[in-house]
Design a protein around this nucleic acid. Structure first.
Lengths: 198, 198
DNA sequence: CGGCCAACATACCACCGGTATGGCCGCGCA
DNA sequence: TGCGCGGCCATACCGGTGGTATGTTGGCCG
């Protein structure tokens, strides 16, 4: 039986994370104060420091929240029963769409490497989006869809290109247009490396 | 005749920028205080606020310093008299090498989008590295080396891949090894899009 | 040579991240 | 059922930092 106190504690903790995600998204890490995060969650800094060791820890909780959200969607697609190539393409589209979410873009892509440090961010991405990109690349190779390339390097290049492109889309005046252009560009590249059936 | 006062002023200004570049590189934007920047330049915050409107403006001055440094080297290579394809490859190597400079990497690549805002960073990059990448891509197309692709999109994808890759190299345990691997990967991709002479 | 203004230094403020301390209430135990 | 304990959170406070307002000095010019 779950205790009443645990419900309360869990509730305020998630309220703090929600508040942090929204404010970090709108005003960035440096631009938002802990007092305001706590205020929007209808608590004070005391509660915040009871649940998190500091501002960085709260940021990482917000980071995990938005990352696991995206990870869930992608993982569902990539574990589907479609052929590998179609799964990869659908995953690609979904990832680009996820990057258009302001929270994911600002917190997970832009600020996280600076706030958490690049090393920690890289390790975290291994367990989230980047890990999925690499594993689906491995799947494509195993399925014989593309030639045997250096997976680590190729995945890294693809990841960087996607992040940059997604930001470009989100800040564009015509997101749909630029989005489809970029998607075409990536797919075009992928077809270049696709092993032709002989 | 240049006045004595102008010499002094210029000297302290550049001393402040130098100090800012070093400290921002070592401890990041948030981690360095204006007092320490001024102290290392052997002045006080008063001098700093006389030359710059605030911390952000000082950061942008430091950003311009490291960017124009890299821009100079790249521009020299890309304006050379070698064939377009060789110029592009040499420029590519030089850009990767530049990204290994800690100052360029942390200030220009990682922190600038967060500190200056992505919009301003993008506009600045148009005049620096990204602009060169796009123009040399245009050159390659004009020279008939590669097919007619969407320049803006392709350059953006390439830029993102390069930035991500360069960070990977710099933080690697064996930078030379990973560096050559990534260089090979990029060159391999470029050869794929290279128009075959018929 | 005298005043004037750019080029700084000094003093001070508001705010923020972090800490120390106090109080309240649900929970388990006798 | 009463009661004390401890987790949960509020309050008060501190050091440091970005920014501002004001004072001071020394080169340049009439």
């Amino acid at each position: 039986m779950r205790s009443r106190r645990e419900d309360y504690s869990e509730s305020t903790r998630s309220a703090l994370v929600d508040s942090a995600v929204k404010l970090f998204t709108k005003r960035g890490y440096t631009g938002t104060s802990l007092d305001e995060i706590a205020r929007r969650a209808r608590v004070t800094k005391g509660a915040l420091y009871h649940h998190f060791s500091g501002k960085q820890a709260l940021f990482e909780a917000a980071f995990d929240a938005v990352e696991s959200q995206v990870h869930g969607k992608l993982d569902k697609i990539l574990r589907g029963d479609e052929p590998p190539w179609e799964r990869a393409l659908r995953g690609l589209r979904e990832f680009i769409a996820s990057c258009l979410d302001p929270a994911y873009q600002r917190i997970a892509i832009h600020e996280a490497p600076v706030v958490m440090g690049w090393q920690r961010w890289r390790e975290a991405e291994d367990r989230y989006s980047f890990g999925l990109i690499r594993s689906s690349l491995e799947d494509l190779i195993a399925a014989g869809e593309i030639d045997h390339v250096n997976v680590e390097i190729t995945a890294r290049l693809l990841f960087g290109a996607l992040l940059s492109a997604a930001t470009e889309i989100a800040n564009s005046a015509e997101p749909e247009k630029v989005g489809s252009q970029i998607e075409d560009g990536i797919v075009h590249l992928l077809h270049l490396v696709r092993r032709r059936p002989e």
